[in-house]
Design a protein around this nucleic acid. Structure first.
Length: 200
DNA sequence: ACAAGGATCCTCT
DNA sequence: GAGGATCCTTGTT
């Protein structure tokens, strides 16, 4: 357990969502025997970001995004995919989507939950991460700041990042579509849609 | 009460 | 590259 590092404290998340998205890359996402190294994130920056779920104001689903930082916002996408976000501190109503990860431990369980597949296809996409961790929407609001259950450990942040525009937000305004708020490990193949990313 | 659409993934071709 | 799966959330009537 100590090799994972300490849980990231609430103060880590109580910052601008873009900074949190950058700093979450390389950290460890832990649930029981499954440990994933976060390879790709996206920042969703509050109600003024027309790509964010909070653009319509507070609703029952997005309620965690308006609450304390460091908690999970988990929702169902397209009726079948479970997406994990981490609530950030500012602006109010912001969160970071976990889009991809590398396996660190528990590969057997990950494979079993992903149809017996192998390689990057296991974890390169937000719905795949949710499946690999066996998440469901009842975990929304869960604090990620204490070891046990679902949590995030300090892990090994990289020296550099790739960044680029976010994926799957055609409905947003042009400026928000163009914002380079997607971040990824520099050399990892465990990243979705690597074409849109550049080393900065 | 209804209709529309979605921060995606998989399977074909 | 195209299309279907699948159902909840949201805005509108």
């Amino acid at each position: 357990m100590s090799a994972l590092g300490a849980p990231l404290p609430a103060s880590f998340y109580a910052r601008d969502c873009v900074a949190v998205a950058q700093d979450l890359v390389g950290r460890y996402l832990v649930r029981d025997e499954v440990v994933l190294r976060i390879a790709e994130t996206e920042a969703y920056c509050g109600p003024d970001d027309t790509a964010a779920h909070t653009r319509m104001g507070r609703t029952a689903r997005n309620a965690p995004m308006w609450g304390p930082p460091g908690r999970a916002y988990v929702y169902l996408c397209y009726g079948l995919h479970v997406m994990l976000n981490v609530v950030a501190g500012s602006p109010l109503g912001s969160a970071v989507l976990i889009r991809a990860a590398e396996p660190v431990a528990g590969l057997d369980a990950i494979r079993a939950r992903r149809g017996g597949k192998d390689g990057p296809v296991l974890l390169t996409g937000p719905g795949k991460v949710g499946a690999a961790l066996a998440l469901d929407v009842s975990m929304s609001h869960h604090p990620l700041t204490e070891a046990g259950g679902l949590w995030i450990a300090a892990g090994e942040p990289p020296e550099r990042l790739r960044s680029g525009p976010r994926v799957g937000i055609d409905y947003a305004q042009a400026a928000d579509r163009a914002a380079p708020w997607r971040f990824a490990l520099p050399r990892s193949p465990w990243v979705s849609a690597p074409k849109g990313l550049e080393l900065r």
